[in-house]
Simulated scan of single mutants.
Amino acid sequence: MKKKILALTLSLTMLAAVMTGCGQSAAGGTTAANEEQKTETEAADMAAEVEVVIQFGHDNNEGDPVQEAAKYWAERLSEVSGGTMKLEVFPSGQLGSKSDLIDQILAGDSVVCIGNGPFLADRGAPDLGIMQAPYLFETWEELDTLVASDWWAEQMTQLEGAGLKVIAGNWRYGVRHTITTKPVTSPEDIKGMKIRTQGSTVHVKGFEVLGAAPTPMPLTEVYTSLSQGTIDGLENPLSVIYSGKFQEVAKNLMLDGHIRDLSQIVISNDFFNSLTEEQQGWLLQTAQEAGERQNELAAIADEESLQKLKDEGVTVTEVDFGAFRTAAEPFYEDTTLTGAWSDGLVDRVKEIIGQ
């Protein structure tokens, strides 16, 4: 009897051991499965937070309002995105000219650049050329009113169809004036002078109608060209003129205010649409904020730059705006421009801005 009891006890003990082992094995299997699932979840989370890197190239130098606003934009984008979106800033034409950058954008690259109406007019929305028609706009508020109009929305739709997306339209690049190697006090004085302009048709024609010889070239080549006598002057906001040190080789500034340069930040439409809705929101928000910062800096820089230019021996002339406006009237009769514009565009824009 004792032998039978001992045998039964041993059997129960062995069974309990087997069952315990099986339980431990099952628990180990469950733990392994949980760990595997956890790893897959973490990998998915990391994939969702992969850093989006966007490059911002422009022609302006260190210390210029555009560059300072660009750095502020980079900080804000990183901040609001929790570090998942990064803006790399390349000043002084390091990524190429505006035309080079637009080509990269149209190829779908993650690049942004700053451009203005005439530049974009040559890229799919011809009517935007009027944004910088010479001596048309007298205040920033007129341009703000135009950007808030249905007409502006129509232009943005056209640009998107051409592959470009404007993510901020509020960057006040500055009031454009002209600095030259010889004095200019009237429209007659500028006739025959070689003036560096942007390569856009509107900028070129704006000086042609005054009798000047517009000479498009990258801003990075202007200093050498002025010093060598290849050109006689350039037009740009005061802060750009000063930061480029052009006053070292040209000593005559006329405050003609021929253009109020309201610029836009442009990105590939395809690339923008590849971002999540949240990422798009971050990009739009911070680009707009950076534009507001740029405007504050530009206003301060213009005032400071004017004084610095005077201090460095530049002769400053406040010319008759009306005389230059009258001299520029043939611009609006040039069919190479108006032929590409919508019928009645000039009148429509004047009506929108209250002229």
Rank of each mutant, 00 (worst) to 15 (best):
208 E>C: 08
153 A>I: 11
220 T>D: 09
319 V>A: 00
153 A>S: 15
164 L>A: 07
262 L>T: 06
213 A>T: 15
290 A>E: 07
343 D>A: 15
22 C>A: 13
69 A>V: 11
57 G>H: 06
186 S>C: 09
147 V>G: 00
153 A>W: 05
206 G>F: 01
154 E>M: 11
181 T>M: 13
60 N>A: 12
129 G>W: 03
297 L>W: 11
82 G>H: 09
76 R>P: 04
220 T>F: 08
110 S>W: 06
247 Q>R: 09
175 V>K: 06
171 W>E: 04
211 G>T: 00
84 T>V: 05
224 T>Y: 12
301 A>W: 02
25 S>P: 00
137 F>S: 03
177 H>G: 04
215 T>I: 05
160 E>R: 13
271 F>Q: 04
61 N>F: 13
93 G>K: 05
314 V>D: 01
307 Q>I: 08
323 A>S: 13
351 E>W: 02
164 L>W: 06
37 Q>I: 13
229 G>V: 06
115 G>W: 04
282 W>F: 15
250 A>C: 06
31 T>Q: 13
214 P>I: 01
71 K>W: 02
299 A>R: 03
25 S>N: 05
16 A>M: 13
171 W>R: 08
119 F>V: 13
355 Q>P: 06
110 S>P: 14
189 D>K: 02
76 R>G: 03
268 S>A: 12
320 D>A: 00
251 K>Y: 01
201 T>K: 15
136 L>S: 03
147 V>L: 11
171 W>Q: 09
264 Q>P: 02
115 G>T: 05
42 E>P: 08
104 Q>T: 09
108 G>T: 04
183 P>T: 12
352 I>P: 07
115 G>N: 12
